[in-house]
Nucleic acid binder design. Structure first.
Lengths: 343, 343
DNA sequence: CCTATTTGCTTAAACGTTTAAGCATATTGC
DNA sequence: GCAATATGCTTAAACGTTTAAGCAAATAGG
């Protein structure tokens, strides 16, 4: 039990007086090894508390069976749920994952990529930092010939697989919902335009306004970092307008929360005087008062699909990156902050 | 650039007509290699886009430079902050971390330990699942001779390093605070007694009541799983008492949130009719109405200390587990839910 | 009964790195 | 000028596994 030195294949071989090669094959149920030997090997392996040395086999086979995951942060429900599902799918196939956080910083992201490559991961599943514009570093991954799968952030920016939701349609759903509630002036606190998903949400918002013949007022369309703090500031900005909106669609739940705080502090009635819709369906949206309507991004499915996409690449030796772009339909969860018309 | 095969030390050696050993030493700035050779080697390495094969060096050196981290879940601010700080400290020293989640399940936790050992991690930093009572699996880690550091959950249960906060004193602080606010009947929705930290909070609560000559009523001390749902149920249970409490100290913020929801739904005024204090200082405690008083657990410091403790072990080859038990003082953040007396 | 095939193993090389040991050559101290 | 030391490299083995190639013995096929 308290064997300091770890048992190796060689130790097993010595006990049974057979070659290490035979032991290796026995442990892998090779058809050319007799059942008798296999049983003996497995018994001794157990007795010696043998644990295969992953490093050695990975080195020999040229596969680490590790997959790198890069997310902006793990303490958002969306990302942690995606991660959990990636892990679940990959663990079943004998892969482990290494999770790294970029904290929305491009520099940290580059660092993460380097350490992942250094650790010889077999693939990388990533969602880009807000800051990331330069894609050189991601090209480095591609040039190494290991699969790269993006989710949520990064659609189309590189020519790789992507899993995400339909941001453009989501905006349409939200605007349509607000119009049905009787809103006439709908504002949008959006993310940075250079991030494709946020740009898509903005385009969806603009096009939906046109569709419903609503005013497209430049004052009502604001770019934001989507933090709580910035949500507060941008909400104040909207309230200071001569012609206030009667609804705000915020492209992120944290910023929506900031907006809600301001509205509560100023005793502005939600949803009557101001309807509010967020994006992401973070758990707190149903915890605060009033509860915030939001878009469910199908985090579990995104995680599972990202993992499966990686596995497809891993299985076929040919590294032909056949673009696998999966766009899921999102779902609008209507809560108190935008339920003007009760059923 | 688009070199399919990765460059190795051998390739560099061939270009310069020196031995692979010399290249290896040059890259590690060995004093026995001339500056001229070092420069030449580094230039060629860059030209060939050489990346050291981590697996090979790890195998040879018997160190993977990977550290496993096990947490109940990552989508809590406490754990994700701990992780971020562990990562920061360890990255600087050339270590990478592998994060795994137990989802509070003992079985998953055992699985995590196995995969981490399989991946040849140099150490494990863990916070135990709520479910975990049997410690056999953790003993397995110790018997492998790799450092094991526990934080938050697991103090004293195994004879290993531990970093955490003073739960007993925290309870004292909370009770003292509530007493100062004029509360006379203080209830406690606690965690499972078999988890040491929750037991310490319960002991602190009980002793503090005695100290302030308050009634220690069995009805007022409830064991809970500390989920939102259970927080709701246990709050209802307290409200159904003939002799209601005028304050509730909940051992976890999520359960405190559940309690708050019930109090809001029943239009019970906080803090006047019922003061509420949570534990953990999750971000949402300052987002909900009213904001919830809570205990700040110093997640950043816990993470840093856990990482540093690991590094100490890693540096000294002798694996003498000199118990390094660090208990930090927690901090009570007073918010609206318990501020009866305004300044 | 003889060839062909299958069964059950062994041998040896390989994965990419590190490192102990060794060996010239150059430098230093006296 | 000679021993002692320092400098700058090479050789070869090692880490623990996998796997291609090969070989003897057993079995099958005709």
């Amino acid at each position: 039990m308290t064997n300091k030195k770890k048992a190796t294949i060689k130790d097993i071989a010595n006990v049974l007086n057979i070659s290490p090669a035979a032991v290796s094959k026995a442990l892998h149920d090779d058809s050319r090894i007799s059942t008798k030997t296999k049983e003996a090997v497995k018994k001794v392996a157990k007795d010696l508390n043998y644990q295969p040395n992953h490093l050695a086999s990975a080195l020999r086979k040229g596969k680490s069976h590790l997959v790198g995951v890069i997310v902006p942060r793990t303490n958002s429900n969306f990302f942690s749920s995606v991660i959990q599902n990636i892990e679940e799918v990959l663990n079943k196939e004998g892969y482990n994952i290494i999770i790294t956080q970029s904290n929305e910083s491009y520099k940290k992201e580059c660092n993460n990529i380097d350490t992942l490559l250094f650790t010889q991961v077999d693939g990388i599943i990533a969602s880009m930092a807000n800051e990331t514009i330069d894609l050189e570093y991601y090209k480095k991954v591609k040039s190494k010939g290991i699969p790269l799968i993006l989710f949520d952030r990064g659609e189309n920016d590189l020519n790789v697989d992507y899993i995400g939701i339909n941001d453009y349609d989501s905006s349409h759903m939200i605007v349509e919902h607000l119009v049905k509630q009787g809103c006439k002036r709908i504002a949008h606190i959006g993310g940075y335009k250079h991030t494709r998903i946020f740009n898509n949400r903005i385009r969806g918002y603009v096009d939906a306004l046109k569709k419903y013949d609503l005013p497209l007022d430049n004052e009502l369309l604001i770019e934001s970092s989507l933090t709580i703090k910035d949500g507060r500031e941008k909400m104040l900005q909207l309230l200071s307008l001569k012609n206030r909106p009667d609804a705000v669609y915020v492209a992120g739940d944290y910023a929506a929360l900031g907006a809600l705080q301001i509205l509560n502090e100023q005793h502005i009635n939600m949803p009557k005087d101001m309807a509010l819709v967020g994006f992401g369906n973070e758990p707190f949206t149903s915890m605060v008062t009033p509860t915030i309507s939001s878009i469910n991004q199908h985090s579990a499915e995104i995680g599972k699909l990202a993992a499966k996409t990686f596995l497809e690449h891993a299985k076929k030796a040919t590294i032909k990156q056949s673009l696998n772009k999966i766009i899921l339909d999102a779902e609008l969860i209507v809560r108190d902050s935008s339920s003007i018309i009760k059923k």
